[in-house]
Amino acid sequence: MWKSVSYEACGRSHRRSATPCQDKTLTSSLNGIEIVALADGAGSAKFSHVGAATVTEAACAYLSENFTHLLTTADGLQVKTKLLNHLLAALRQKCEELACGLQELASTLLLVAIGGDSFIIVHIGDGVIGYLQGGQLKVASRPTNGEFVNTTIFVTSADALGSMRVLRGDVSDIDGFVLMSDGTADSLYDRKRATLAPVVRKMMQRTAILSPDRMYQLLENSFEQVIVMNTHDDCSIALLVNKSSSLCYSAMNFEQKCELFGLRATHKSSRRRVRRYDEMLSQLQSAQTLRQISRWLRLKERYTKRHLERLQLLGLVTTDGVYYSSNI
């Protein structure tokens, strides 16, 4: 029911200096717990890219194992302390391996975990966590910066516990979550109004209906061509969406479908083409051969194949041998 995708891009500044990307993302599906995590390594910390990876791995593992326990623990401070101690223990182990200090592994942490009808959000430092509820994009956790824009709190900071946010709640009326690092937030989060760019909803919708490979490809194109060019910082994003929600294909209106298929909504043939794609996607809920689809559509095989190839290119249809199918 929940689908996730994530992407991280090395910023222009780090590309120039051949420094590794310090943003790390991780998606996890273990013990029925769906998790997306993102960490942004501290700029000058030598191994912050390793620290960011360690923190996302440790946080995902801990939430997968202890989700129910954390959810039912009434004492919020206890939850924060246990989680932070677990993260710091993982980082200290990494310090020994790398023979470095803890601050060399400094990073932020953003995480959303879903189990059953509940969610847990964890946030230390900058970056933004948003969600979609009732068709409205909302912000669950804003960036924690110091007075100056290039200062924030890290997992390794002395005041990490004090500034750490842990939120719990019911996920039943939430359709999707988004995590973004500060580099991405430069483009998709209005700092003054504390609102998310409307395009985030479109990203959630695409995540819900497209194949993971196709969605990753779309994120890669958009980040490399647009988001990365708007900042010097590394940029990353993680999306976790409910594919059976208002984000599913059948809930899309004509204009949204036109945009998905790359059709002009004002063109006179677009309605006919969208209708045809609707029929094909519906029919392909069970795997079929080209001949079967062609007969059903009453369309020559070569035309049917062209339509199928288009849907395949868009990540809406997959093939297995001679069989075509769609699970949107």
Partner: peptide, 12 residues
């Protein structure tokens, strides 16, 4: 192939 366009970005 371009999910996000320049005009989709917020202006900070």
């Amino acid at each position: 192939d371009l999910l996000i366009r320049l005009e989709d970005l917020v202006t900070n």
